[in-house]
Write a protein that binds this DNA or RNA. Structure first.
Lengths: 193, 193
DNA sequence: GTCTATATAGCGATAGAC
DNA sequence: GTCTATCGCTATATAGAC
């Protein structure tokens, strides 16, 4: 309305992030040029630098945003049994990751393209998320609901298994996400008891 | 001996592949230049093209070589029980992948940098390997050793879980590879029975 | 806020001398 | 088989006009 023609900071900013997310996931950080991102947004390359100081910050912001969303969304109702908490974690992990495949892909594939400092910050967030699962497993062992020799190994094994769903599951296929979740939960449940 | 000075095709060829393997694993295919590979080998960039027609072929040859090695090494002794065959598969997968972390990393991370044709060929090899595991699971279900709703899902879940070992296990740490293998086998065994 | 133009650097691949 | 030199192109990032 009272806005200067050509001024679109509130629109272009999110569009830059969306374009980078899509293109990084498709082609890889190193292979995607700032020109390609600008073309996807519909501006010239110089305009991108109103929204990010450089390409590295763009990558880091995407990964940090994803990990923050993940940590904000995960819940752990301590009043339930460890088994119930683990079942909720499995369902949450599959559901959350399925809903944002591009961000998940980038978070796993582009770690090595982060600077050392940025890498440490992302790894710390990842450690926090893993800690949430391990706490459930340890509580389950203490309550004699689970039999697990090493809860750290079990944590990593479960997360690797669950995240793998994103590499093959596509909606509209032979199975629904609910069926897939039920079968993964059954495997996880057996593996820890 | 009777060799022309400066002629080192039998030495340089493998060194080019080794250098590319190491650098691709560390920095990613797109981020590694032919100049960087030449420097790692100790030659000038022009010399590389005596050993590969282009950079893409270098990547494909590494990935195809890895998958061929994997398929040649995996064994399935059909005379054993499905449980014994699965245990051997778990131990083999962890052992084989642990021995060549760079090749494994590239095989998973650089798929999107393959041309369409090359991608299809690598995916076919991967499908062959997964088929070997699924055959064990199906036989185990038929023999009532395993209870699995969907052997395809179980195949993908088990492989994702086992391959995840490479992302965190380092020799000389808290646990030996044998101990890790034993714990993964315990989780897999429970998950399918 | 976006544009065009440009600085500076590096890329994959090839040609031709030795 | 390896080297040096080079072609043609693209990269990130910045400067200054509007």
């Amino acid at each position: 309305m009272a806005r200067t023609a050509g001024s679109h900071s509130d629109i272009t900013g999110p569009k830059v992030r969306e374009a980078a997310l899509k293109l990084f996931a498709r082609g890889g950080y190193a292979a995607v040029s700032m020109r390609a991102i600008a073309a996807e947004v519909g501006v010239q390359v110089g305009a991108l630098y109103n929204y990010t100081p450089d390409k590295q910050s763009l990558l880091f912001d995407l990964m940090e945003g994803h990990m923050s969303d993940l940590l904000a969304a995960v819940q752990d109702d301590l009043s339930g049994s460890a088994t119930a908490r683990l079942q909720e974690f499995v369902a949450f992990h599959i559901r959350f990751h399925h809903a944002r495949p591009d961000a998940v892909f980038i978070a796993y594939m582009e770690l090595r393209n982060l600077t050392d400092d940025n890498f440490k910050r992302i790894e710390a967030l990842r450690g926090q998320y893993e800690g949430g699962l391990e706490r459930i497993l340890r509580d389950g062992v203490a309550a004699k609901e689970f039999q697990i020799v090493d809860t750290k190994i079990a944590t990593l094994a479960i997360i690797a298994m669950l995240t793998g769903v994103n590499t093959w599951f596509r909606a509209g296929g032979r199975l629904s996400l609910e069926e897939v979740t039920a079968q993964y939960w059954e495997m996880v449940r057996r593996a820890v008891t």
